[in-house]
Design a protein around this nucleic acid. Structure first.
Lengths: 111, 111
DNA sequence: CTTGACACCTAGTTGTTCTAGGCGTATATG
DNA sequence: CATATACGCCTAGAACAACTAGGTGTCAAG
């Protein structure tokens, strides 16, 4: 009976954020739009998930932040990937591969 | 710095358990062994994750339970998939497909 | 006789996500 | 002109899954 729409897979959000930021400096609000857009509206990142995640990633030294102006002249906090962040992203992508392979192994087990 | 070995993807465990039980009645301890074995030792289900999950799935009406004897003569709680459980498994597998497709879309975005 | 595998269990901690608010500015829209 | 909507940031608290770290008892092997 609970709403199930576009539920997030716990633990995946950090990787997706790192991947989006890896495409170039971008601010938080735009990150969530980008994730939603690229995933064809499947993932909808709640702001209450987004901003804590960004602070978490920044605290861990994976993202750097800088206040700058957007195209439209507003001030926004632009994030960019640090060297540590790049390594982390690579590790998380490799891990995702292994996990989804392992899940596939189980899901495809017949009898 | 934290140990990262065979980390579980949160939210996936229920589906994997349902899938294993779908192969035939099986008790908890054997479920964790089966998951580990099929995933080629990648997933290691902790007992502190396993048993609460089984009770959760039983409470939701997705699993039925019955005490029976194992091959070795020990008493064990055998779980089997209910009709609701089968529907749930199908829904979760379909959802997993959509999620992993969406993740792939994002991870493969270049530029 | 004691170690380890089998087989079950739970209380408490940790950590991520979501709900549901709040703040302030700019730009449409009625 | 008012006011709604998009932009853009934030946080406190609830919810919940997974893990840690214990516990019980049986049985076989050394």
């Amino acid at each position: 009976m609970t709403e199930d729409r576009s539920e997030f897979l716990k633990g995946t959000l950090d990787m997706l954020i790192l991947k989006i930021v890896a495409l170039g400096p971008i601010h938080g609000y735009a990150i969530s739009q980008r994730i939603q857009q690229i995933s064809r509206d499947f993932f909808q990142v709640q702001q209450g998930s987004l901003y804590p995640a960004l602070h978490r990633l920044e605290n861990r030294g994976w993202l750097g932040a800088e206040w700058r102006a957007t195209d439209t002249g507003r001030e926004a906090k632009f994030y960019s990937l640090t060297k540590k962040g790049r390594h982390q992203l690579e590790a998380e992508m490799a891990n995702w591969e292994r996990i989804s392979d392992a899940v596939a192994l189980i899901l495809r087990t017949a009898e």
